[in-house]
Design a protein around this nucleic acid. Sequence first.
RNA 1: GCGAGAGUCGUAUAAUGGCUAAUAUGCCUGCCUUCCAAGCAAGCGAUGCGGGUUCGAUUCCCGCCUUUCGCACCA
Length: 451
Amino acid sequence: MDDIVSLCKRRGFVYQGSEIYGGESGLYDFGPYGVELMNNIKKSWWQANVHAKENYVGLDSAMFKHPKVWEASGHVGGFADPLAECKKCNNRIRVDKELGKIGITADEKMSEQELNKLFDENRTKIKCEKCGEQDFTNVRMFNMLVKSNLGDFTGSDERPVYLPGEACQGIYLNFKNIVDTTRMKVPFGIAQIGKAFRNEISPRNFLFRTRELEQADTQFFVKPNENKDAYEAIKQSRWDWYISIGIKKENLRWSQHENLVFYASDAWDIEYNYPSYGFDEVEGVHDRTDYDLSQHMKFSGVDLHYSDPYTQEKYIPWVLETSMGMGRIFLAIMSDAYTVEDLGDGQSRTVLKLHSDLAPIRCAVFPLLKNKPELVAKAREVYKELSQHMVCEFDDNGNIGKRYRRQDEIGTPYCVVIDFDTLEDDTVTVRNRDTTNQERVEITKLKQIIS
RNA sequence: GCGAGAGUCGUAUAAUGGCUAAUAUGCCUGCCUUCCAAGCAAGCGAUGCGGGUUCGAUUCCCGCCUUUCGCACCA
């Protein structure tokens, strides 16, 4: 894992966020090659989940949403637990529950200050369950939602808005819009790639757990109780995508949730075998019944029933969700592709064996020698033409082997070399990243061969 | 958030209460090079931030930040 983090930095894939100020926890910036790779992953995902499927459409919803959205989703109320910690044994107590035990009602809408006041007044009556001590820290509210003051010019914090805790809510909010303005009929799906923000207590494991993340979500709407077959099909489709982008099968597995949230009917995760900490979730595929639409119907007062044009029935569709963490898939792809080949004699070659559709650079163009102007000029010409059609890089620095290695390390599948024969017959060599074999081809056929 | 460790050029390492902070690699410029990290020469580039002790701190102390591991958290 250290090697991958180091490569990410060294070769301009991923940098620590706000690095020149000492860094900011849980935030990462994607560098020149990182953003290319990330865009290619998104493109592949979008192709597989929107364009290749007749009954899916895309969406891009505003990041900020009406505050009530997060009440409806359960993010505001259910996940703001007031906690205090025992200074002796570090055990944590739920302050509202402990107060409840001694007959004092702590309202869940109380502020941190109000709770602290209540807690301070009653500290003597509360003991740590583990060690019996009464020495606690102050009460802290733990809520993962990130607050903002969009549209609040009073400075009073009276109307807090939240950054999205998950990207998928925008899909539920637009379900009715899409039914009303497109020809989509249940069963159909909506796909979206969006950012989410979480106040993770402890960001960890590089891109795996961050405070700002991006999610690629699909929500598939089905008739109630007609979820099972569709769910299995979606699971299969998601698995196939991972295989199609070249992830090794042995590094992937399904894992079923043992404790389902109350509304879910089934939940499976796709896990990747990350270096150094093992299998962990990349994507969740969840069968969520009608919970999401029902909640928004309740909180917004808008009828979100669907009228089935074939049967005239009215119902709230059930939702089958897929939600992939972009940072997590990025890290999985990098890990899976990272290869160090032993060439003997203590020599080795570092290669990122990325699927060629994902590689940040599709093709690198080199003149064989830098000090032969006619080679350089010809190489520039080839580069200029190719770069109209694919992501290319020109390099004439150092010897040819070094330039191959540089491209190997960032996963460039093809290197094109202009040599003296090129000047005679307009052919070039195309070198393959994985085999290092070369093939002599005509310049006119280049585009076709490597795109 | 708690506990423990760590933080030196882009990367990987070295060293030091006081000399110009070293080595490799990288990057870069020039020469050279007719296909897999060759060579020669020049250059770039670091003690995370702030405070304290001290004549002098990268080194010792404190705070903060970042990061790693464990706990907890992860709907």
